[in-house]
Design a protein around this nucleic acid. Structure first.
Lengths: 208, 208
DNA sequence: ACCTGAACACCGTTCAAGT
DNA sequence: ACCTGAACACCGTTCAAGT
């Protein structure tokens, strides 16, 4: 029964949302689940695994924009020319979803930097971005690098907001963070376009 | 005597370098300084302040590229036309310094996201980047946003490397991270140039 | 297979006391 | 002003024992 594990993970996420990540102890999570601390170890192995599971839950619930030409009504046949949202719109949507997720769970931003994109929920996101970049016309050898760059900008912005790096800029000049994020997304899109159109000098020769 | 404080901070930095950040406890730092745990509180106030002081020490030792037309030999008179390294070279140098610093102190990347750029050592870096962007011709209202974006890309890359987000990409296809960082810097430079030349639509209207 | 209780080796921090 | 020792309320995890 993996049911119990999910229950534990959800309790831990709720606890982090309400009291902060430092309040997430094996003992506190156990109490919230109505069980003894040691009972957790049958389901999560260790605290590190608990934290991994927590970000996994979050990534799983991240709503991804549907890829172009997918999820069309009218039968299982492929519809390769169906005009789904174009890559620009999909990338913006993904960016907004990710930022919203971090707003909702600020404690997650630090963990997202420290866990490799290895869990299926994480590779799902990576694959989505790769697909967008290919649709944009980015040459194949540049796709992985650009995927990491796009992820770094989006995640870095959200982490800077959540962690406080952007905090308390100028007291006399309040910053509109929504608008700034939009402008950053614009810049990222332009970068992708430039790489796609070959205006950028290819600075990544054969990997090796 | 602020001397003792520095001694404590350095002991903590050494401890983090050797054993990781989780080994940095008040008790361990005290032992390394040859003092009782409680004696630390006269100098650092709390553990949070200790961590702040640690990143402060690191930022203070970050070697910044000399700004254009500064530190010229031959008297205190201003030499506004002295050709120091151009903004491109200075930004690359800063990027490499920051990445090298995080390589040397991987534990610092998480802290850099969670502390506002408020300490004098941090604003020193921010001001440097602002100066580079002005030299590049970025319009004034866009300078602060672009400073944050540049910082986010550089810090985000270093944090992804140090934290493990980039870890274990494809086993069959090793990635040259030095080359990737160089390519990312190229992209950032191009973005700055575009903003400077006004090719980018100004997406940040009057704040508010 | 899952859960319990006691125990071990730790934490950050407060407090009264020393010099 | 700076340091000490004891104490408080916590940690993650191991281990033997229960069902």
């Amino acid at each position: 029964m993996e049911d119990r594990r999910q229950e534990i993970l959800d309790a831990a996420v709720d606890l982090a949302d309400e009291m902060g990540l430092e309040a997430v102890s094996m003992r506190a999570v156990a109490q919230r689940t109505g069980v003894t601390p040691m009972a957790l170890y049958s389901h999560v192995g260790s605290k590190a695994e608990l934290l991994d599971g927590m970000v996994g839950r979050l990534l799983a619930q991240l709503r991804l924009p549907e890829s172009a030409g997918a999820a069309m009504p009218g039968g299982p046949g492929p519809a390769p020319d169906a005009p789904g949202p174009d890559w620009r719109e999909r990338l913006r949507t993904l960016g907004h979803s990710a930022r919203t997720l971090v707003h909702r769970h600020p404690w997650a931003s630090a963990l997202l930097f420290s866990r490799p994109a290895v869990a299926p929920d994480a590779v799902r996101v990576v694959d989505q971005i790769n697909a967008m970049l290919r649709d944009a016309g980015v040459p194949s050898p540049e796709v992985p690098r650009l995927e990491r760059l796009v992820g770094t900008v989006i995640l870095g912005f959200a982490a800077s907001e959540a962690g406080g790096r952007f905090g308390a800029a100028e007291p006399g000049c309040p910053v509109d963070w929504d608008a700034e994020f939009e402008a950053d997304l614009d810049d990222v899109l332009r970068l992708v376009e430039m790489t796609a159109s070959g205006k950028a000098t290819t600075s990544m020769p054969g990997s090796r």
